[in-house]
Design a binder for these strands. Structure first.
Length: 428
RNA sequence: GGAGACGUGGCCGAGAGGUCGAAGGCACUCCCCUGCUAAGGGAGCAUACCGGCUUAAACCGGUAUCGAGGGUUCGAAUCCCUCCGUCUCCGCCA
């Protein structure tokens, strides 16, 4: 959520910056609503002030044992007008709030200007894609012999789910353990375990609601109530600080969480239908930081580096992409995507997304720090995948495949697999 | 699932229809005193929003907020209803 003051005081430049990321702000609608809000709010508050003053007088008069009939008569005349004003104001505040909640974040000055993903900028590359002296298979073919079973998953649930068995399931688990250990031991994150079902408030806090409800899975719960399945650990972890005022000395908060993520993938029919690149359910190790406003851009670089460290330790070639203004996510002010090399697709594919949300989420959540002057200031929130576990598994299978159908395991992973060096198809 | 108790500011904790945004304490900020650390005295100190003044801040006036939402009333932290949550006991259970 943007600060409504920015819209009031600086509408022109806000509109221009939003246009840069492809969002057209309905200026006229905003101005109309604002003008009406102003008169209605002023009137309502004046009436309330009048009523409060009279009621106070009644109390004083009665406590002195005098007759308050005249005052009571006067306040009675206020009732209807006050009620009408309050209702009109309330019904106006809803569309105004909806409008505000639907406006995306402003891109940071350092974000490359562009229309779509074609205008994203490559920042750096690491690692050399391996040359193969045999026909390369994608992870679906490599995985099939190792326990990756989409048919079984289709029977159980439908499309966009996977079943993993044996060594492959263990490798999947090992990847998550490995990532958690690196981030907690080497990067200073605190591991957290969080709910996978959250309420609407939490989804609003991080920006998934109200605009992206169709991307979420819901679980009914009583009348008009429902849980939402988290699309990322970002939601529960970031919301830990919702409605909190923390002391400056407690900052920064650095959390890492391993959770499943659930996405409806509505609107992506036909994309990545093969394999486990795009699933309704996938595991992810997520990094979340809450920091002082002045620190957030330094921390974005740091956090991105933490995610990169995993790829380096696994020896997976990747590149870092700065998303352009037009490709930025709704809540983000700046985002780096990490793209891992996938030989099976002969392409770099997203495996991590690291974003600085500045105060956009904190404003929705009212997540604040008590600053030096004692005034609470909004925190800045950041997060990044460190990494998407399923896609990391895909990358390991494809990059480390051997001609005989086995997969050599990256050394960093071996301690998590009892020293195993090669994952080989089970003998028939 | 059954029975009961409770939800107040950064924290603890009073208040039980009226000049209550809320006593007191802790923490914090400023000042004074004190030859270190410690202690003492005074003042300040919730949040959001609106308006005024202003480049802005500070400041001033107002409104709302005592778990959330409704209701009763001229007036609700206080009374009533619904929901959410916490705690205790019983039952059940990974």
């Amino acid at each position: 959520m943007l600060d409504i003051q920015w819209l009031r005081n600086d509408l022109e430049s806000v509109t221009a910056r939003l246009a840069g990321r492809g969002y057209r702000l309905d200026v006229a609608a905003f101005q109309d609503l604002e003008a009406e809000r102003k008169t209605l709010q002023t009137r309502t508050q004046e009436l309330q002030a009048r009523r409060n003053a009279l009621s106070r007088q009644i109390g004083i008069t009665k406590s002195k044992g005098k007759d308050a009939a005249a005052l009571l008569a006067e306040v009675a005349g206020l009732g209807e007008a006050l009620k009408a004003a309050e209702e009109a104001l309330a019904s106006l505040q809803k569309p105004l709030a909806d409008l505000l909640m639907g406006i995306p974040n402003l891109p940071h000055q350092s974000v490359p200007v562009g229309k779509d993903s074609d205008d994203n900028a490559e920042v750096r590359r690491w690692g050399e894609p391996r040359r193969f002296d045999f026909p390369v298979h994608d992870h679906v073919d490599v995985g099939a012999a190792l326990g990756l079973d989409f048919e079984a998953a289709a029977k159980l649930s439908g499309a966009r789910f996977a079943v993993m068995k044996g060594g492959l399931a263990r490798l999947h688990r090992a990847l998550a353990q490995f990532m958690l250990d690196v981030h907690t031991r080497e990067h200073g994150y605190t591991e957290v375990y969080v709910p996978y079902l959250v309420n609407a408030e939490s989804m609003r806090g991080t920006g998934q609601l109200p605009k992206f409800e169709e991307d979420l899975f819901q679980v009914p719960r009583g009348e008009g109530e429902r849980f939402y399945l988290i699309p990322t650990a970002e939601v529960p972890v970031t919301n830990l600080l919702r409605d909190a005022i923390v002391e400056e000395g407690e900052l920064p908060f650095k959390f890492v969480a391993h959770t499943p993520c659930f996405r409806s993938e509505a609107g992506s029919y036909g994309r990545d239908t093969r394999g486990m690149i795009r699933q309704h359910q996938f595991d992810k190790v997520e990094l979340v930081q809450m920091v002082k406003a002045t620190e957030s851009y330094r921390v974005l670089e740091e956090l991105t580096g933490h995610a990169e460290a995993i790829l380096r330790k696994l020896g997976l070639p990747y590149r870092v992409i700065a998303l352009c203004t037009g490709d930025l996510g709704f809540s983000s002010a700046k985002t780096y995507d990490l793209e891992v090399w996938l030989p099976g697709q002969n392409a770099y594919r997203e495996i991590s997304s690291c974003s600085n949300f500045e105060a956009f989420q904190a404003r929705r959540m009212q997540a604040r720090v008590r600053g030096e002057k004692g005034k609470p200031e909004l925190l800045h929130t950041l997060n990044g995948s460190g990494l998407a576990v399923g896609r990391t598994l895909v990358a390991v299978l494809e990059n480390y495949q051997n001609a005989d159908g086995s997969v050599t395991l990256p050394e960093a992973l071996r301690p998590y697999l009892g020293g195993l060096e090669v994952l080989a198809p089970a003998k028939k």
